[in-house]
Design a protein around this nucleic acid. Sequence first.
RNA 1: GUGCCCAUGGCUCAAUUGGAUAGAGCAAUUGCCUUCUAAGCAAUAGGUUGCAGGUUCGAGUCCUGCUGGGCACGCCA
Length: 570
Amino acid sequence: MNLYKYVSDKLNEKLGFVAKLEVPRNRDFGDFSTNAAMVMAKSAGKNPREIANELLPKIKELDFVSDASIAGPGFINLKIKDDFLWNAAQTAAEITRTAKPMTIDMDYGAYNVAKSLHIGHLRTSIVGDTLYRLGRALGHKMISYNHMGDWGRSMGMVIAWIERLHPDWPFFQENFDPTADYSGYAMPVAELDTYYPSAAALAKTDEKFMERAQIITAELQNGHAGYNALYNVFIPVSLRSMDEIIQKLNMLPFDNNLGERNAAKYAEPVEKLLRDKDLLQQSDGAEIVVVKRDEDKKPMPPVMFRNSRGASTYDATDIMALYYRKITDNPDHIIYLTDSRQSLHFEQLFRVAKLLGMFPESALEHIGYGTINGTDGKPFKTRDGNAAGLNDIIDMVQTAVRERVAESGKKLDDETIDKIALAALKFNDLSHDLRSDYIFEPSQITSFEGRTGPYILYTAVRLNSVLRRAGKFDTPKTATMGTDERNLVMELLDFDRTVQSAFDSRATDLVANYAYDVCQLVNTFYHNCPILREDVDTETRNMRLALIKIAVDVLGKTLDLMGLKIPVEM
RNA sequence: GUGCCCAUGGCUCAAUUGGAUAGAGCAAUUGCCUUCUAAGCAAUAGGUUGCAGGUUCGAGUCCUGCUGGGCACGCCA
């Protein structure tokens, strides 16, 4: 149950006034606090404390309130009855499903094929996955899209590079046979990875090569049999490696791996829509859509539908992708999760969608996350100056975990080590405000003490261990709780509220930080409150076991929202 | 040049979206393992929230102006 909401609703009902309920930072003040008196004082022209005195008796009438008092400038602090808390705690792990389920498309990942995932894909993947899980847990119909970069100029570059390496391959010959089997030409992914960077570097200095890549891109898109056959050879290699990482990160698989190539199929209907509304204009040989408005204070360049060479730009493919989603899912809402540097692009895109009458702007949302920087404040790079590969980063954390385990003399299997490493990596990412840049420091990610993912797992592992040892027990109907137990119950009863606001405000850090807060209280409780010792009476023992059970349920669900699993031991 | 974002202990981050005494972790110092897993617990120290004004019962949070940094601004995605 959502204690906050329950108390808030009852309080407002009693006072006939919508007041803001707060959880005091300092628990000594009480369980909850309201500034109702201070807000009312303004309109009534009275002293806040005077009004608080009038409200106090009414609040004390509420059956779940054990005590209420006035403090400071006019806050009314209240305490909840222990029996009520204990009863409520039994359903602390339940998530209240939304009253208005929506169909929500989520666009995250957006991986480029023929280019391995690197650190720049970490946030969109992890945060996107968690938002998806949150939405689903709340009862929305979530549909995820990996809008892959699989049809642009980078494809032409890769093919041009392969042509340079193997001009003798059949794909480049006049008498190419499209019916033959070419799967034997598939290259290892490590090799494929080098093609695009090499090609891009060459294209910078070699105009002829660049031109060749552009021609190939156009011919590929126009159905050139050889290039398409080659494309179909290396795409599966890339997709397989993508899948591997998705699994390693324990992400839910994408509902749709549909990118630019799929979107491009809808060029015709989209162009027709634009023409019908008379939105396409000629400008310097290109075709554009003007999205600037009179009230704009900031620069608002037009949307480029087709460049002067006649090729579709990503502005265009994004409109087409939007069209595709409209005619297939017809979602109530679409969330795009990308680097914040693309904010302007999405603002433009949303304006086109509105001009076309496809979606109102309120249905489209872009979440721009901050970049992951190194200690120098610039985007994180490895020593050789390249963006660190996601596989390398995962390996790095796994190695650190393995060393840590070896040092302690523990023996843990590989599966456990993977779980711990993943917790370290994901918790680190999720615990930051997703809209701000953050600094990726390997030494911090590979240390597992304190505010880290392994700390969370460790806490859960210890609780499970106690439950295993305890065996069966009866959950008491009432409970006499000490401070540590009560504090923990209060925090556990904040689970539902945390989930709701994490999704509402698209703040995945709330989930991660909540997990940490719970663990801190659990560990204090664990340390101060013995359970299986002989001198603990049955009643206390059962109460504490029941509390641990609730804590494990809540922690388990919280970890599940982050795509993390609790090991058996660590 | 125009616009958007950011600035909080030595370091990395919080602060219930305007609330009470600005909280955690790391690093430092110090206690606690024969007792449910020490990847833990507890304690000490560390702050004029970049600067200057303003708004109000109340500002790290909102407004204005500085300073310093990041990003974006039609044929790359």
